[in-house]
Simulated scan of single mutants.
Amino acid sequence: MNITRKSRVRRALTGLGAVLAVGLLPAAQLAGAPSAFAGPTSASAPAPASAAAHGRFGVYPASASASEAGSKAAPRAGSAAGLLQYNGGTIQHSPVVYLDFWGSQWKKDTNGIQAYMAAMFSGLGTAHDTWSITTSQYPDANNSAPAFNGAVLGGSWSDSGRAAPAAASQRAIAAEANAAAAHFGVSGDPDAQIVVLSPHGTSPDGWPNSGFCAWHDYTGSVSYTNMPYQLDAPKGSRCPNSALGGKLDAFSIVEGHEYAESITDPQPESGWAAANGQEIGDLCESNFQKVVLPTGTFAMQPLWSNRDNACVITPRAAG
């Protein structure tokens, strides 16, 4: 399947963008809000042409810090019917996440990212996880919705046979996702998510100058996320490093965003998305909060709930 950047790429959680600027807009104005954020270096920088048709993070004022953005931006309000619409495609019914630490460079990493990510996904999906269940209100055409019956972590792989590319293309990232899917034996599994984590010092798909913090897409075989090394975001970046005071906050906020969107829209944008292409995470990129799981406490963003007509950390019960 063609996975060229113009036709397929998803720029979902991108730099901390215009939520402070647009977080209080009424629903009628929100529907027409820009679908791309300006990138990590300038609040007025244009979006890359390759992402023109796809939703990404909005643009915060350059003077707003990540912590200010996370605490002060109000959740967005939508129409009474909710902003997310079903487009007739697939969703993930029993999501399983596979972490691919790409490149021999990870052998020298001492920041604890591998353990941190494994701990987060070992807690998500358990009975203590009241955050992921927001996705359970978004079923497929057969009224079969995402369900969680235990930790969603399926495995972790250090693909360390050789160094990851210094500047991997989107096609190379997709090929690595396919290699990881083959390693885990999940090629073609609609419930699998591959997270391709690039090491320190690399620039996957032009990051951090391409106007995103991470994105998710579909290779034709498996859902996958391009997850750059968030600690490399330059000073002043709107990627949410230390948003709530934790060194690795950006990894949980950014990857949590991609995880939820990969559940509800694994083959963008055939699943659940707003009319402008924004997904369950795009609508709520602010008001970061600490989510307590049995494996630790993690900074996360709210998710859009049609049922609550709001951005929520924990949705109200059905009924």
Rank of each mutant, 00 (worst) to 15 (best):
A180I: 07
A180E: 07
A181F: 04
A181C: 08
A181N: 08
A182F: 12
H183F: 15
H183D: 11
H183K: 15
H183W: 15
F184Y: 12
F184Q: 01
F184T: 01
S187E: 15
S187R: 13
S187W: 01
G188M: 10
D189L: 05
D189K: 04
P190R: 06
D191F: 05
A192N: 09
A192L: 13
Q193Y: 05
Q193L: 15
I194R: 11
V195R: 06
V196A: 12
V196Q: 07
L197I: 15
P199Q: 09
P199R: 08
P199S: 13
P199N: 13
H200Q: 15
G201I: 11
G201H: 06
G201T: 12
G201R: 09
G201D: 08
T202F: 14
S203P: 00
S203L: 10
D205M: 13
D205L: 13
G206K: 01
W207S: 01
W207C: 04
P208Q: 14
P208C: 13
N209I: 03
S210E: 14
S210T: 13
S210L: 10
C213K: 03
C213N: 07
C213G: 13
C213E: 05
A214H: 00
W215V: 10
W215R: 08
H216F: 14
H216G: 08
H216I: 08
D217A: 14
Y218D: 12
T219V: 10
G220S: 09
G220F: 14
G220Q: 12
S221R: 10
S221F: 06
V222C: 05
V222R: 03
V222Y: 07
S223M: 05
S223C: 12
Y224I: 06
N226G: 03
N226Y: 05
N226K: 15
Q230K: 13
L231H: 07
D232I: 07
D232W: 10
A233Q: 07
A233E: 04
A233M: 06
A233P: 08
P234Y: 12
P234T: 09
G236D: 11
G236C: 11
S237L: 09
R238L: 11
R238M: 03
P240I: 00
P240C: 04
P240Y: 03
P240M: 06
S242A: 14
A243I: 11
L244Q: 04
L244N: 10
L244P: 00
G245F: 08
G246H: 11
K247V: 09
K247T: 14
L248D: 00
D249S: 02
D249V: 03
D249K: 01
A250Y: 02
A250T: 06
A250S: 15
S252M: 05
S252K: 02
S252W: 03
I253T: 02
I253P: 00
V254L: 00
V254G: 00
V254Y: 00
E255W: 07
E255L: 12
G256V: 04
H257E: 07
H257Y: 09
H257N: 07
E258K: 05
E258P: 08
E258H: 08
Y259G: 02
Y259W: 11
A260R: 03
E261A: 06
E261V: 04
I263E: 01
